[in-house]
Amino acid sequence: MPGRTTKEDTPQDAQMEDAPTSAQVGEAQVEDEIEEDQEEEVEPQRVRILPGSTDTAASFEFIDEGHTLGNALRYVIMKNPDVEFCAYSIPHPSEPKMNIRIQTYDGHAVDALKKGLADLQDVCDVVAEKFWTKREEYNAEHGIAR
């Protein structure tokens, strides 16, 4: 959303995030075509903190994410010793939203989320690297040239 401000919790912004599509349509009508093209490149904000959250206990809403990321992220965040509780849910199957709840013993819940995402990336690197070496080995052994 190009019209976003740094203010996170103003009621107006919250409303826009609740209904991103209608907000975009409204803006596109005002903006000329060049800006409309730019809009495609700017990623819309897909993560937000749900109201009622504190530093150590927060719920995050992810738009356009599902069980794929939800469960994997829940697992790595639960592996963090600073985290007391972590769970994810998809509140309604027809809404493309996924919520993650994080409660920490100490430290910010946001930091636990960030660490979770970073750890997942590290895991992916290791998996890709080991998978590829084994694939190459297997192909060499069995004379598969591809």
Partner: peptide, 16 residues
């Protein structure tokens, strides 16, 4: 999967 996490990491930064 990695790209997904990378994008979301940026999103979380922007959110904060």
């Amino acid at each position: 999967m990695k790209l997904k996490c990378k994008k979301l990491e940026q999103q979380v930064m922007d959110m904060v």
